[in-house]
Design a protein around this nucleic acid. Structure first.
Lengths: 231, 231
DNA sequence: AAAATAAATGTATTTTTTACGTTAATTATT
DNA sequence: AATAATTAACGTAAAAAATACATTTATTTT
């Protein structure tokens, strides 16, 4: 090793990762948190996180702990930023890489989450979290909002088949504001990346709304041409 | 310490930071790199970077090494992302936090940079760099471009007093495309964050162009109202 | 005095965004 | 069987923003 006499076994640098997982559930934006069962901060609320092992990438560490803690597998997360100030953790130097995701909350997820002691908490009622985790959540939501403006992120976290009113309600949850249904429909359809299906969703209205699916091929094609998907 | 039997003195996690510093110099966008004088990779080109010490924040580490290597002080950098794959470095586990900045290249900077062995390299002629540093540069420029679209980042890296043609040429360098001078002027003035000065810059035209300065107060005021500064 | 140079300005056209009301398909109710 | 209730689907007009484009102005150099 080279010029690195910085650390010895008593002065180590630790790397952790914390997951800011948003879920969308019947019109409500939720956040995945859990109540710590062990020290430190036993009994307090926390994001789900872990130290990063020497032989794993940061995203691997995050997926490992997510599966251990909630049963959720293969969640695609994006890096948010590092939390690296010298004094952020208690008693030792630890840098945490925040990672966020926005996923569909399916019924089976709810069961798993309950079983493991984690929970989906409505976004606007989030309690105090340990350390700088509330800051992480704040950073993540504003990043998510910005991102949603130039990527059709919304599509990624609805079921395979979804209706336009559903998609709209998702965007309304992300942005926390109401949108005009006529203009919304016009806009999303104008991208040309939605395929209309024959089938209708009759569970939430008498008339029923047509299902659509996302045209991944068309999407990558347009993306490579530098098209913007601002909603 | 808690549940962290991950590392011992033979298996350490190292944290580094690498600086992707863009500079704007007479219409040309440049990148700060240097030729390594020591092993490893002696003689190859590299970004400027350092290990992060236990008692310093990541941005402190970056500013320390920047000053050591170039004489530049107090550069305001933004975090780009981490480079954390298990195999990215040679022989030991090292996560690097990429940080980028866009600064004014002033004449005295050039001298300092030369004296210390670093150099400003035209952005479109960047050579092969060590490790994953070329990837970092690619990531940084695309982040910078995106950022420049919603923040008046351009103002930050011109001299205190600057002319509108200068500002335009900066944006043209960032985006690598020409813009219409009439529309550009209209747009930037419409934000209402530029203060016109009496004085003119006569160094680059016979007629001379009026200097402007940036109205920081007005800017923060508008920013807090959620105004967008898309150029 | 004339030529040269880049700065400054305005307007018409196109495109995008916003605002807003009506009809359509279906189920539930009588 | 008819009616009421409910949300989906659709189109157009107005306003705002972006784009395209040509001339005049201030100054220095010749």
């Amino acid at each position: 090793m080279w010029e690195n006499d910085f650390y010895n076994e008593h002065d180590k640098m630790y790397i952790a990762t914390d997951c800011i997982i948003f879920g969308f559930d019947e019109g409500v934006l939720k956040l995945l948190i859990f109540k710590r069962k062990v020290q430190p901060n036993k009994g307090e609320f926390s994001l789900i996180g872990s130290f990063v092992k020497l032989n794993e990438d940061v995203s691997e560490a995050a997926n490992r702990v997510l599966e251990e803690t909630t049963g959720l597998k293969n969640v695609f997360m994006q890096e948010l930023k590092t939390y690296n100030t010298v004094d952020r953790d208690l008693g030792f130097r630890c840098i945490s890489v925040g990672q966020y995701a926005l996923i569909r909350i399916e019924d089976y997820d709810k069961v798993l989450v309950e079983k493991y002691g984690a929970m989906w908490y409505p976004f606007d009622e989030i309690p105090n979290l340990v350390l700088d985790h509330n800051t992480m959540v704040k950073d993540a939501i504003s990043r998510l909002r910005r991102k949603a403006r130039y990527q059709p992120i919304g599509f990624e976290l609805l079921p395979e088949k979804f209706t336009i009113p559903q998609l709209q309600s998702l965007y309304e949850a992300i942005y926390q504001r109401e949108m005009d249904s006529r203009n919304f429909r016009k806009k999303v359809l104008s991208f040309g990346v939605l395929i209309k299906l024959e089938e209708k969703d009759k569970t939430r209205s008498k008339k029923g709304a047509f299902y659509y699916k996302f045209d991944n091929e068309k999407y990558s094609e347009l993306l490579s041409k530098g098209i913007n998907f601002e909603i």
